[in-house]
Design a protein around this nucleic acid. Structure first.
Lengths: 150, 150
DNA sequence: GCTTGACCTTCCCATGATGGGAAGGTTTAG
DNA sequence: CTAAACCTTCCCATCATGGGAAGGTCAAGC
């Protein structure tokens, strides 16, 4: 098997045909060779590259990170330090996102804990979202040229 | 102050003018009254509604959730149970996302721990992303009509 | 009265990864 | 020859947010 078309490469690599074309247009993979009719042709090397991308995506790397990882992967001389630095930065971003989400979840969890959740209409969750306190705080900073429009 | 224009409402509510227009087009807020010249006019009630939306966004609710929360907020008779159910569902989704991210972070963290990160070129992080093992697994399932294209 | 600057309006575009789907060409089996 | 299963490119949608252009409006200062 020297060459295969896109859906076969998709099955082998685990990357959808749609995304293979996308990665090509994004420059993560070189433009595929074409048949006379214009069909893309892939080799096993291409499939490996695609699978690499799929695994990198699975651990959350974005397009630009992957571009760098691919470049480091190709370069047999690169110091492992460069790869590790990229991974550590990415991990830190992940942890920051996790921390943000946990803060949100804690807030929500707290609100939920205070809501009896039965038939009665009073609800601390809505009360908290409606809280007027913070709304007027930002108002002091503006210097409106006029108090009303029109 | 009976009415104000959009930038003032933005300052008071903490929602950008851009997003106020967006929420209007999305139907989260009623279409604003207009001056003769077509300028939008807002009341303090509108500002409260906008601030409500801002706080709901801050705890991660999406547009459709907020639409329901606003409707529950307006309805004085609603049972707190309905609000709580919405919040609990949202919290569960948040927790699921957090769990996903944590799994990714753990994997990455593990890889990083195995990488010496110095000048040498051997790097378990890249090795793992390049791992051939999983790549060929999916291949057995397909029944290619032809082995090669062209 | 005219200019200036700070507003306002609508419309289009971009993000990032992914997929849906249309319109139309190609290949191969039957 | 036809039908099915491919392939191609192009456009659109997600989700919330903002940037920016083109053009209209308003208040203030001269």
């Amino acid at each position: 098997m020297v060459a295969m078309n896109i859906s076969h490469a998709a099955k082998l690599s685990g990357v959808s045909a749609k995304m293979i074309r996308h990665y090509e247009s994004a420059g993560l993979i070189p433009a595929a060779a074409r048949t006379g009719a214009g069909y893309r042709l892939y080799t096993l090397d291409d499939v490996h590259r695609l699978a690499f991308i799929r695994r990198a995506r699975a651990v959350g790397f974005g397009t630009e990170d992957i571009r760098q990882l691919l470049s480091l992967w190709q370069n047999r001389q690169r110091p492992a330090r460069d790869v590790k630095r990229l991974a550590v930065e990415h991990l830190q971003q992940l942890q920051a996102r996790i921390a943000d989400l946990e803060a949100i979840a804690d807030t929500l969890s707290h609100l939920i804990g205070h809501c009896h959740g039965d038939e009665r209409p009073d609800c601390p969750i809505l009360d908290s979202l409606a809280a007027d306190s913070a709304a007027s705080a930002a108002a002091r900073k503006d210097t409106p040229r006029r108090k009303k429009a029109q």
